[in-house]
Design a protein around this nucleic acid. Structure first.
Lengths: 192, 192
DNA sequence: TCGCCTGCCTAGCGACGCTAGTCTCGTGCC
DNA sequence: GGCACGAGACTAGCGTCGCTAGGCAGGCGA
């Protein structure tokens, strides 16, 4: 029994090692450097071991994405904690979102760009994803018009933020006026 | 001299054949099916021929993207042609943008998702890209507040549209309420 | 007519994600 | 204590990718 338990502990430990290694590799050298061969080498096991933990590379990226979702949720929540509800909170929220993407490009890509097979926007979605969306939705409650559907409002606001991030990160929008663009967006959604 | 000219004509013709074939392959089977081997087979030349026309696969995708930009510009311009300037034109513009993405996913991805190395938002940008942005910017002129910088306004509006398209296409936003989201976005940017 | 040069092809390099098949070693039973 | 078994890891390799080296042929100018 104890042997069994030790094995399960070891497996769980190695599972986490794989995710952490993938994340670190992605953060330092980009996702294109995260290959199953390199990953195997880093964790000092052979490639097939990866497949005893995950169904494929996609699922490993998905696991990193979930870590990212947890941290994004925390960052958003923390950003609005000391800010009065209303437009100021929305501004802080938007700033925190963009900063998160800027500071954690690998996590951001895993979450919102790469193919992970994760289920979004569903009751059966992983908790970190739902938490992150909730953290985004919450501060918006105070600025929507009387007509608005909160979920839809948050989705559109999120889309706009994601568009800014994605287009900027891929070089399609110049980094230069990023702040002004963000201010403009916030003004449109939170008034004044 | 005439021989020389015929050769250049042939080369130009083959150049276009490569782009058209890549585009068709991407439209029918997705970009992951566009490989240099398949492309070479389809145009009935060997792989190295591709590299005498383009520096690499990236540049081929870029050529398709430019076709996409031209057609997107035309679609946007056409969409607002018979619509009175103002909020109605912005609504038509947004609808046309989203419809274009929906109907031409391969072109859209080449333009705004894949790595093409194209230079955006610069005086030296390819004309089709500048035209497309202009087509987007133009109808917005009538709805921006007195304070607003037209370029920045258009960039943010574009970002929001792109965010909606990207997140929906990747399954991160449910298709279900897409229309309502688009309406909400237009309302925020063009007023009532 | 000869030699060169352009333009194409065959073949192959290193890397990718993933898997089949083998072997070793710890475990539980006689 | 010796042995059969099975879990779990490994080596090796499959098919595919983007890209390129090197050689061959056919048309051009001298």
């Amino acid at each position: 029994m104890s042997v069994q338990e030790r094995r399960e502990r070891d497996r769980a430990h190695r599972h986490q090692l794989i995710v952490a290694t993938a994340r670190e590799l992605a953060e330092t050298q980009g996702w294109e450097a995260v290959t199953t061969r390199r990953l195997a080498e880093r964790i000092e096991y052979s490639q097939p071991v990866l497949y005893s933990h995950f169904s494929g590379k996609r699922e490993i990226v998905g696991a990193v994405a979930l870590e990212g979702a947890t941290e994004l949720a925390a960052a958003l929540t923390h950003a609005v904690a000391d800010v009065p509800r209303g437009p100021a909170a929305v501004a802080a929220l938007a700033r925190a979102y963009v900063d998160f993407a800027e500071r954690n490009p690998a996590l951001y890509d895993a979450l919102f760009l790469l193919d992970t097979g994760l289920l979004f926007a569903d009751a059966a979605s992983p908790a970190p994803l739902r938490d992150a969306f909730q953290a985004l939705l919450d501060p918006l409650a105070d600025v929507l018009g009387e007509d608005a559907d909160p979920d839809r409002f948050a989705e559109v606001f999120w889309s706009a933020l994601h568009g800014l991030v994605a287009l900027t990160r891929s070089g399609r929008l110049p980094r230069e006026a990023a702040d002004r663009r963000l201010d403009l967006l916030v003004a449109r959604f939170a008034g004044g």
